[in-house]
Design a binder for these strands. Structure first.
Length: 284
DNA sequence: CACCATGTTCCTTG
DNA sequence: CCAAGGAACATGGT
């Protein structure tokens, strides 16, 4: 569940149901998930604390925690990797096969499930140092984006995936943003002129805001025990409402007609990641 | 068996 | 020091 819109929707979902809850016990099933803290230390630090506010930075989740008294970390930091999920589960329901960390809250468990174990849940805030601006905040200006892009000859799509340029865009929304901006994913970052950078910034903000809006207006099943229709980030589901179908315009649509011009959507590889675009609408 | 998958970090090379 | 490219991490779907 990895890009900024999905994380934002998850944060909004979790905040009201987790805030104020006391962690009675902690079980770490994957030591690597909580590294560099050891599982025993991780549990010792969190046992007896309460969750406070939940927020987000880029694709990272930030859980404020209030210890009983002693000093210690004030926040638990989570990253979903490629397949991470977080949700409350009734205590009498069996844990999923790939539960990485489970917090016992009483009648419910707070579960971090992660099939591929690329995700993290620890106290390590160092990754924040390398993050660029939040795309939906005022700090994300045409100037900051232009300066970041001007230093590279790489394809602009590759730079959108660089979290130090702007935080939160992943492989799906990189293609979606460029389609909206009508910019070719292959365009060298430093060759984009000021007006195109401004257009790109606008497309980034609109694409992400729209995705958050979409995820916020749909009943979601974060536990993943329902079918794919409950997970808006999968983009397309057979019997989903129309806006599910229309949400992703080019991602995973190779061979399909472009919604704007009818030209066939292409798939290419950039920096060893699949990239989708309309060769007619995105010529430069 | 082959290839693909929402991400980040580390290592090498220039 | 930096930029760029690729492997590694790990599991499952097709």
């Amino acid at each position: 569940m990895p890009e900024l819109p999905e994380v934002e929707v998850l944060v909004r979902h979790l905040a009201p149901i987790v805030r104020g809850r006391k962690i009675l016990d902690v079980q770490v099933y994957r030591a690597k998930t909580v590294a560099p803290t050891s599982p025993s230390e991780f549990a010792r630090i969190l046992r007896g604390t309460r969750f406070e506010e939940v927020s987000r930075r880029g694709k990272y989740l930030v859980f404020g925690i209030r210890a009983a008294q002693r000093s210690g970390p004030s926040a638990l930091i989570g990253h979903l990797g490629m397949t991470g999920r977080m949700y409350l589960l009734d205590a009498d329901v069996a844990l999923p096969k790939h539960a990485a960390v489970v917090f016992y809250l009483g009648r419910e468990n707070f579960v971090f499930e992660d099939t591929r174990y690329f995700g993290r849940l620890n106290f390590d805030a160092r990754p924040f140092q390398r993050l660029g601006p939040e795309p939906l905040e005022v700090e994300f200006t045409v100037e900051s984006l232009g300066q970041a892009l001007a230093r590279s000859t790489q394809p602009v799509k590759v730079k959108l995936l660089d979290q130090s340029v702007v935080a939160g865009i992943g492989n799906i929304y990189a293609s979606e943003v460029l389609f909206r901006a009508r910019v070719s994913p292959c365009t060298s970052a430093c060759r984009l002129k000021a007006d195109r950078v401004a257009h790109l910034r606008k497309a980034i903000r609109e694409t992400l805001a729209e995705a958050i809006e979409c995820g916020s207006t749909v009943p979601l099943d974060f536990s993943g025990y329902g079918d794919r229709e409950g997970h808006f980030y999968f983009g397309r589901a057979p019997r989903a409402p129309d806006f599910y179908e229309k949400r992703l315009r080019v991602y995973d649509r190779a061979g399909e007609p472009c919604a704007r011009c009818g030209c066939t959507i292409r798939r290419i590889i950039l920096a060893s990641r699949s990239t989708y675009y309309c060769p007619h609408c995105q010529r430069t």
